[in-house]
């Protein structure tokens, strides 16, 4: 019964995206992947939500700049459990080209628990969908 439940529930991941200082590339690709007919993640039951409180999967892009850091953490803490974090693009994962900057001193996983990484600059929408699929696997175990 529990397994059945898990299988049902994992078909309804709601996605929230946080831009932690990204250059738009990953952000646009996330929007593209999530919204437009060609990729249409809604067929997987995903829905983009406007409020962090409704979210299950969080897509975070950008190198987590010093200014945005606290705000990202604040929004992140507003997301109810269980939640899965997907780092999109190389910036949140390793800092990418901005690694040595004074304004981006943290990688995302040093601040919050990251579950899935989707490197790329930016990753293709297909890769982001892959990332969401991986996140679902993890999400299932959290339920």
């Amino acid at each position: 019964m529990r397994n059945v439940m898990k299988n049902i529930v994992q078909k309804s991941p709601w996605i929230y995206r946080i831009n932690a200082g990204s250059c738009n590339g990953c952000d646009v690709e996330m929007a593209t992947a999530a919204l437009i007919p060609r990729y249409d993640v809604e067929r997987l039951g995903c829905k983009y939500c406007g409020s962090p409180k409704h979210a299950d999967i969080v897509l975070i892009s950008g190198p987590v700049t010093e200014v945005v850091k606290d705000k990202v953490l604040r929004v992140f803490n507003e997301i109810p459990y269980p939640k899965v974090v997907v780092a999109v693009g190389i910036c949140p994962i390793s800092g990418g080209v901005f690694r040595d900057s004074y304004a981006a001193r943290n990688t995302l996983d040093s601040l919050i628990q990251v579950d899935v990484n989707v490197p790329g600059c930016p990753p293709r929408p297909q890769a982001i969908i892959d990332g969401i699929a991986k996140a679902l696997e993890i999400w299932k175990t959290m339920l």
Partner: peptide
């Protein structure tokens, strides 16, 4: 100050 103090520590650690 930062341009002088920069040592790329984060990249080395990673």
């Amino acid at each position: 100050p930062l341009s002088e103090a920069m040592n790329g520590s984060s990249s080395t650690a990673l």
